[in-house]
């Protein structure tokens, strides 16, 4: 599916993931985890890659095979800089009254494989969840 870079589309992206995973009889707990990981990844694209700029394109594709659910999300915004990522420590984030910094951690915790690629102005995140 393709959506424009607005946070109000997050719900339809989640529904898209759930619909495909249910059709393939993926277990409900694993569907919950994929739904959250994809929502976090799309939020990061909209807020960070596109820096909140509306009207840009976010592409989400889902493939469910016998042993796995694979998701690919692409954008043409600013590439994710992995060097800025740090493992969040919530006591410290709360002390600093910060609300962000949790999404990438959630993705890494919930998905079995996560890969970021950037080439020729196009960024891609690929995530895999194996069928439990």
């Amino acid at each position: 599916m393709e959506v424009s870079s607005s946070l109000r589309h997050l719900r339809s992206v989640r529904e898209f993931v759930v619909q495909h995973a249910r059709q393939a009889h993926f277990p409900e707990d694993a569907i919950d985890e994929c739904r959250l990981a994809v929502c976090e990844a799309c939020t990061n694209v909209i807020e960070h890659a596109y820096q909140g700029q509306p009207g840009r394109l976010v592409k989400v594709s889902v493939a469910v095979g016998p042993d796995r659910l694979s998701v690919r999300i692409t954008d043409n915004g600013k590439a994710f800089d992995r060097s800025t990522y740090f493992e969040p420590e919530i006591r410290r984030l709360a002390r600093e009254r910060r609300s962000g910094g949790l999404g990438v951690h959630i993705i890494r915790r919930l998905m079995d494989r996560v890969e970021y690629r950037s080439r020729d102005g196009k960024n891609e995140i690929r995530m895999v969840k194996y069928r439990p």
Partner: peptide, 17 residues
Amino acid sequence: AYISSAGLGVFMAFIEE
């Protein structure tokens, strides 16, 4: 029915204050 990190972030941002 659902929460993402942005929702958790609201709890985190206000609790100290």
